[in-house]
Nucleic acid binder design. Sequence first.
DNA 1: ATTTAATCGTGAATTTTTTAACAATTAAAT
DNA 2: ATTTAATTGTTAAAAAATTCACGATTAAAT
Lengths: 211, 211
Amino acid sequence: MKKFPQRTVTRAFMYLRALDSLIEEGKAYVSSGELAAMTALTDVQIRKDISVFGKAGKPRVGYDTRRLKQLLEEYVVQNVVHVVLFGVGNLGSAILRYPGFQEDKIKMVAAFDSDPNKVDKAINGISIYSLDKAKLLIQKKHVEIGVIAVPKQASQQIADLLVSCGIQGIVNFSPTTITVPKGIFVKNIDLAVEFLSLFWDMNAKKAPRYA
Amino acid sequence: MKKFPQRTVTRAFMYLRALDSLIEEGKAYVSSGELAAMTALTDVQIRKDISVFGKAGKPRVGYDTRRLKQLLEEYVVQNVVHVVLFGVGNLGSAILRYPGFQEDKIKMVAAFDSDPNKVDKAINGISIYSLDKAKLLIQKKHVEIGVIAVPKQASQQIADLLVSCGIQGIVNFSPTTITVPKGIFVKNIDLAVEFLSLFWDMNAKKAPRYA
DNA sequence: ATTTAATCGTGAATTTTTTAACAATTAAAT
DNA sequence: ATTTAATTGTTAAAAAATTCACGATTAAAT
Ligand SMILES: NC(=O)c1ccc[n+]([C@@H]2O[C@H](COP(=O)([O-])OP(=O)(O)OC[C@H]3O[C@@H](n4cnc5c(N)ncnc54)[C@H](O)[C@@H]3O)[C@@H](O)[C@H]2O)c1
Ligand SMILES: NC(=O)c1ccc[n+]([C@@H]2O[C@H](COP(=O)([O-])OP(=O)(O)OC[C@H]3O[C@@H](n4cnc5c(N)ncnc54)[C@H](O)[C@@H]3O)[C@@H](O)[C@H]2O)c1
């Protein structure tokens, strides 16, 4: 797999999201300037990024939205990724209902909860199982990513479980640090941190920037 | 306000989160190496970052957890930030119940929903109002940040409303691009993007890295 | 057919960020 | 009291990312 600049890849996902909006509203071409306005980046940055993947634009008209989407996805979106969720509470059930997953790229395979009242049901077509089913299911379905949405007291325990099932990536919503062996990738999503860092950016009066 | 390297500030919030865990478990000192293991960064990076704010460590023992927390907060956490939420559905109510806000730093002031069945109630002590109350409340309580947790068809409309109320920062959970005037800061949180970019990182076999 | 204006694509310059190297400091061991 | 080992803090070097400057290309206008 060719190596692209780290930040370019991150931004590629922003472009893809913007392109989805544009395609949905029927726009056939978009210029780097328009994309810049949508993403709060600069037009130069965008052209440079795109050029890393190939030539996709036509001078004077801009980029074909569908073609650009295809180009970015070709390099940046891998095969379908399989995901499981732990903790079907307030947040967990909201996530199971999230309409943003495109089935051909992200497959939510199953959910798990320790509460017997929650298991053997389904939300949005996704079945909820007890924890003892986790290992078998994760391995059988080749699940790559686990989501932690349990109370923070339980999150390390679930992290350990995920690791023992052979999962390589974790998205952790609980507001606490989890410890995992080297080689496992963790992405923490903490609303408190989002607020504080956004507020910092606002006060630092930097050029606006999506993230 | 002194200017710190952008990335150092971002990481400072990660350090604060790790420090909270350490303090909670009663640890008085922590070395850059231990922090590195917790955050999947390197010890050098951490020392470099901290040195930007001041000298906070003692050779041979490391950093006093409480003191380091205080130092980072002094520079990186501003006054209390006031937040409102739009859309008290599955996700919105989970957010209102989020226990990770420290009242002295983040104040969730109010929530708004267009559904009459949801207004005039409260979740976790936070009152839910109809949309027409938004402007007055936001201005009276000096709200700086608005959260968008409405269905994606409504999110641009809410973004416009937030802007018209004078809000400077938006956290957008809806999986679509919103357009705002220059000078307004937007942070998008899109689970689909998180999965795809985490999966990219995993496959790119980069050194593990929290984010 | 020629000119004009918009836009892309890119090599070079600049800025920012990370990494490396190592001196200074301190606690503990002897 | 001296030595040893661990750890910080800083300066310099290297790497990565961004911005700049501008030529090339194309569609539209004349
Ligand atoms: N990042 C964010 O923005 C954000 C927002 C809201 C909540 N959160 C966090 O997400 C987590 C869940 O929040 P919530 O409001 O949904 O909580 P909740 O109490 O509603 O749900 C927790 C669920 O986890 C289950 N559970 C408990 N222990 C378990 C275990 N050991 N194994 C499996 N399942 C277990 C419970 O049965 C329950 O269904 C919390 O850590 C919360 O702090 C994060
Ligand atoms: N980022 C994520 O991880 C994530 C996860 C889940 C959901 N989401 C997104 O969050 C949003 C909300 O999801 P949900 O599952 O809570 O949806 P939901 O349908 O349960 O809730 C939406 C709420 O918004 C209210 N609403 C609708 N139109 C409104 C308007 N114009 N003004 C004010 N309120 C309005 C509805 O009354 C409802 O209470 C969606 O856009 C969804 O895609 C994001």
